[in-house]
């Protein structure tokens, strides 16, 4: 399978702190690829590099065969790299509908004069976006009932869903989701997992996700990369990754299951 996104030898540091060291992995096209790793492993920094917000000191990011160095974040968005944020970055001064429509910004053309007059092409374009958003995104994500509400009034789970809607309005080729189910209850998680699978299958979008919820990761991922202390430990299919002793060590601090059990349950030993 060809890769839509390829990270090669990426290094990023802030002063003396090395956030990413020589990170390489690939995102095969039309898969759900997940980056996992303990807190502080550099997952969000990686996303920020792909978005173009951080400039890595070394290495390349190749998107659809093209090296992204020097491409500004808005241009990357227009090229089809859409994302959501770990700590929800909705625009609090706008309604749900306007937040979603904002996602379509890069695909719209109307200029200032057209906007001032709200006439002709500018008006038609707004209407086209509205109907696209309504029919394909709001319906799909089942958020019709809240479209008029200011985003600040929504529950956490719904806010995450609106963020997903906004990213979808960007017509992504690669959709980057930063912890899409963090802080959700079980039902919300299941909904979100279903949406992610549908997005990949029906929309043909490649999903790149950072997530801690191992149940969900193992269920819906096609490809997993494991990051620890800024380095990729391994990548591969979910089953392969699960068995990798280094991964177990990174997550649990040891690969020796016996000693781990002792650590977790010292009383049992006595009994």
């Amino acid at each position: 399978m060809s890769s839509i996104l390829e990270i090669n030898n990426l290094s990023l540091s802030f002063g003396g702190v090395k956030a990413l060291q020589d990170v390489s992995f690939r995102v095969p096209e039309n898969t759900v690829t997940t980056v996992i790793g303990p807190n502080g492993a550099g997952k969000t920094s990686l996303f920020n590099c792909i978005s173009g917000f951080y400039k890595p000191q070394q290495g390349t990011i190749r998107y659809q065969g093209e090296v992204l160095a020097g491409v500004k974040p808005p241009v990357r968005a227009a090229m089809g790299l859409a994302r959501t944020f770990q700590n929800i970055a909705l625009f609090r001064g706008m309604t749900v509908l306007d937040n979603i429509k904002l996602g379509a910004h890069v695909h719209m053309k109307s200029g200032l004069l057209g906007s001032l007059a709200y006439f002709g092409a500018a008006r038609r374009e707004e209407m086209a976006v509205r109907s696209h958003v309504e029919q394909h995104i709001i319906d799909f994500l089942e958020i019709d009932h809240i479209r008029r509400q200011p985003v600040a009034s929504l529950s956490y789970g719904l806010q995450k869903r609106v963020e997903l809607a906004r990213a979808l309005a960007m017509r992504p080729k690669v959709l980057m989701l930063d912890e899409p189910v963090a802080g959700m209850n079980r039902e919300e998680k299941e909904d979100m997992a279903r949406f992610i699978l549908d997005i990949r299958e029906e929309w043909g979008v490649t999903v790149l996700m950072v997530e801690h919820d191992m149940g969900m990761v193992m269920d819906i991922s096609d490809h997993i990369a494991v990051l620890n202390f800024g380095q990729v430990i391994t990548e591969g299919l979910p089953e392969e990754v699960q068995k990798n002793p280094q991964v177990i060590e990174a997550y649990l601090g040891t690969s020796d299951m016996d000693s781990l059990r002792k650590k977790l349950n010292p009383e049992q030993e006595v009994a």
Binding site: P73, S110, S115
Partner: peptide
Amino acid sequence: RTRIGRAFIAIRDRDISAEILGI
């Protein structure tokens, strides 16, 4: 009512996210 106004508000609310979203 148009994309330009939304871009303005987005910059006010969260400029960095706005940039990553294509503004």
